[in-house]
Design a protein around this nucleic acid. Structure first.
Lengths: 337, 337
DNA sequence: GCGATCGTTTGAAACGATTCAAAAACTGCG
DNA sequence: CGCAGTTTTTGAATCGTTTCAAACGATCGC
């Protein structure tokens, strides 16, 4: 691979001039400038990003730490971030934390040594990351949290309006006539799960509905969790006639458990999910769900980060994206008994 | 962030010695060694990957170019690759090509400037990449292709046994009694789509079944493609009683079209997909499909690449992973008419 | 024609590591 | 104790860029 020295020799200029042409860092006379550009073209030269990054103490890479790319919600987030990053000249280094705090910390400490321009983070759990990310702040490297926030997070963030989404879903179920409402939440140390539970509870307060504590079940954000908690819920007396699931994966588990219990959805039990994943369209019945755009979450966060990288200052921003309720076939009025 | 110079000063040794301790590149006496390690611990030192990469002319990053992370098949591949890469000390730089040859080339040329240790590539289409990847070869950087191969690819590769998977699926349909068999293939410039079509055709040759050319429809690997081609197929006379879909996304489109035509699956039309994505379990009816492990595809490729990085020579390897047929509810014997 | 001024161009230093030849410090042996 | 041989340790050179102060060259006014 050719380097700047060869370009300089071919264009009969000094190293500095080549660099200036490439970076527009000083005015260079037209003929000289063209000689350099020609040489670049002839040799197919591309600046070595490592050397550049080393000197500038910053590369054009953005670190992105997510829990698990095989979780169907995250690819869209990553893609949104990648698109914005790419079109601004940045590349993504992707790391999976598997929701392990330790793995997350390891990635956090590791990535620094690549001198990334910024960091996008979907935090794994309730751990406080202030200390670790402080090192980034010190180095002037922006960090934006997505989807959920670490304990006492004071930096930039982009999240969905989880509380409001859950409220809308629950209110809809109430409007259908349900009064025996249950919910299966995600892990409550995650802010998004907690906020969704708050929205659920707020909706109940309107018509002054009271529910027994067993109607609120905490689960992991996946199918097996949803399944086992639904089994528990369906044994309760009176049996809940509607379930608000903390996300669509939980809802899939619900669906399975409902079917196995010999019950029908939505006739016996109505069900609303959260995320509105593509797979909700093809389930049986098609899943009603709170829509949030993972893509937009990612792209908004990347835009915010790029702004920071470009030097935009100001106080920490907390962007909250709206949600909407998508009604399909898993919801209906309760049976008259 | 601390650097090697500070370590050297604190440990009262030279730069070279610190480096030797960190890399085990020369024997260092125990007490000296310990002084260095202590200093590293005290200052929380981590080697700057850019400086190291610049000097070594190779970093511990692996470039990975895939068509689109939001395509449900690819996350598992990426995850498999990431796990193996990570546990060998490598990090993944992820790029989406969107199946655009030009974007793929741009990534290919760009990534080189980061001096990656290797490259994992799910090629986008029929373009010949020999020239571009030759540059990597020259630099001693391994390139492994996954899932499908560029035209006249002679390097390492890991693919599923697409031909055999398609053969098994089709033979199963034939065993059920179907004779009016149709297929909706992926884009036939992709080797995996082509191979699946070959398997389909081979299965027909056994019982000497002949089908009209209209029973073979080429589509894109997604739901809308599957939908529109199914609409076409269902108008044919005689109507096919079984469809082998080139992948599960196509199969989802089929399902939709079958339902909209007022027909039932599997009673009127049997359907088999390919990939066995998770979402196939929750469709109505649950989708029979050819199972291939995306995770294994990715991890095998990464292992192969790591071997190459570690200097394992030898001729190009073509690993072909087996498939199995998962039978669910979208397949049944044809109606007796 | 000379000095001041302005805009271009240069070249050396720096970024933080690795590596290689050479120096230094040991070791064993006579 | 000195010497050869071996093991440790050193320090300078290097990777490919950016950047800054300084040198250079052209232009202008007087």
């Amino acid at each position: 691979m050719s380097n700047i020295k060869e370009i300089a020799k071919l264009a009969r200029v000094s190293l500095g001039t080549v660099s200036h042409v490439l970076n527009n860092s000083a005015s260079v006379r037209e003929p000289v400038r063209n000689r350099v550009l020609d040489a670049v073209r002839v040799l197919g030269y591309r600046p070595n990003q490592l050397a550049r990054g080393l000197r500038r103490v910053q590369t054009s890479m953005i670190g992105m730490i997510i829990p698990d790319i095989t979780n169907p919600f995250f690819p869209a987030v990553v893609r949104g971030a990648e698109d914005v990053a790419f079109s601004n000249g940045f590349r993504l280094i992707l790391c999976n934390s598997d929701n392990h705090h330790s793995k997350e910390l390891a990635h956090l400490n590791e990535l620094r040594t690549y001198l990334p321009a910024g960091l996008l983070l979907i935090p794994s759990n309730f751990g406080d990351l202030t200390a670790e990310t402080e090192v980034y702040r010190q180095a002037g490297t922006g960090v934006v949290c997505i989807d959920r926030l670490p304990t006492s997070w004071s930096g930039d963030s982009v999240t969905a309006d989880n509380e409001d989404g859950a409220y809308k879903a629950t209110r809809y179920l109430i409007q259908l006539g349900h009064t025996a409402l249950a919910t299966i939440t995600g892990p409550l140390h995650l802010t998004n799960a907690k906020d969704r539970l708050s929205g659920f509870k707020r909706a109940l307060r309107g018509p002054r509905l009271k529910i027994a504590p067993e109607y609120i079940q905490e689960s992991t954000f996946n199918k097996p969790g949803g399944y086992s908690k639904t089994v528990t819920l369906l044994k309760l007396i009176p049996r809940p006639t509607a379930i608000f699931a903390g996300n669509d994966m939980i809802a899939l588990g619900c669906l399975l458990a409902i079917r196995e219990a010999g019950l029908r959805c939505p006739e016996d039990v109505s069900l609303v999910g959260f995320d509105d994943l593509d797979l909700g369209e093809t389930t049986n019945p098609a899943l009603s769900s709170v829509s949030q755009s993972g893509y937009q979450l990612g792209s908004t966060a990347a835009n915010l980060l790029v702004d920071r990288i470009k030097g935009k200052g100001g106080p920490a921003k907390h962007v909250v994206l709206g949600t909407s309720l998508t009604i399909r076939n898993s919801t209906a009025p309760p049976r008259k008994s």
